[in-house]
Simulated scan of single mutants.
Amino acid sequence: MNCDIRTREASADDAEALLTPYDFLSSDNERCPLELAKANISKISRIDGSAVLLGEINGVALTTCTLIVVPNLSRGGRPYAVIENVVTHRNHRGKGLGKAILDAACERAWNYECYKVMLSTGSTRPATLSFYESAGFEQSRTGFQKRRLPKRQEETS
């Protein structure tokens, strides 16, 4: 892992910098308007334990993910967490940044007493699936979704 990475909870003030890594999510990803990004970061941070996490080197946002902690009625009332929108700047992949942001998200979930952390991907690329496995995630469930928007186009590079 790159020892120079700093992971932290993002604030609305980080919105503009956070939008750059999302440009590398997929070629058909529609960029979130800045004011809406600021509002959404603030909304997420008001959910107990939840956060948009940011990984940066020398103050430059290079990786991010969103962690949502969900209150629960099973497992003795212990919450669970969902990770979404994992992305690393294309020019900085393979350096441990994505793993660092996922480690930070899981550590936060454990600190909030979550009994599990779930992550799903629409990617079928072997490199993407291997990345999540190398970060400690197990492909162990069958997922279903019903979409309002069309599925994003997967990048081939």
Results as ranks from 00 to 15, higher is better:
residue 3 C to Y: 08
residue 4 D to W: 07
residue 5 I to R: 11
residue 7 T to A: 08
residue 9 E to F: 12
residue 9 E to R: 15
residue 10 A to S: 12
residue 13 D to C: 06
residue 15 A to Y: 12
residue 23 D to W: 00
residue 26 S to A: 15
residue 28 D to H: 10
residue 29 N to A: 09
residue 29 N to E: 05
residue 32 C to H: 09
residue 32 C to L: 14
residue 32 C to A: 13
residue 33 P to G: 02
residue 36 L to T: 15
residue 37 A to M: 14
residue 39 A to W: 07
residue 39 A to C: 10
residue 41 I to Y: 05
residue 42 S to E: 15
residue 44 I to S: 06
residue 45 S to A: 15
residue 49 G to H: 12
residue 50 S to W: 11
residue 51 A to S: 13
residue 52 V to S: 11
residue 52 V to N: 13
residue 52 V to T: 14
residue 52 V to G: 06
residue 54 L to W: 09
residue 58 N to R: 10
residue 60 V to E: 15
residue 61 A to P: 14
residue 61 A to W: 07
residue 62 L to A: 00
residue 67 L to A: 12
residue 68 I to F: 11
residue 69 V to W: 10
residue 72 N to A: 07
residue 73 L to D: 07
residue 73 L to T: 14
residue 75 R to P: 01
residue 76 G to L: 01
residue 79 P to I: 08
residue 83 I to Y: 01
residue 92 H to W: 13
residue 93 R to W: 00
residue 95 K to G: 01
residue 96 G to Y: 09
residue 97 L to R: 00
residue 104 A to G: 03
residue 105 A to M: 11
residue 105 A to G: 04
residue 106 C to R: 08
residue 107 E to S: 05
residue 107 E to K: 08
residue 108 R to E: 06
residue 108 R to F: 02
residue 109 A to L: 09
residue 116 K to S: 12
residue 119 L to W: 14
residue 120 S to A: 13
residue 124 T to F: 03
residue 124 T to M: 02
residue 127 A to E: 11
residue 129 L to A: 11
residue 130 S to Y: 02
residue 132 Y to V: 02
residue 133 E to G: 05
residue 137 F to Q: 02
residue 139 Q to H: 11
residue 143 G to T: 13
residue 145 Q to F: 05
residue 146 K to Q: 04
residue 147 R to C: 07
residue 148 R to C: 02
residue 153 Q to E: 10
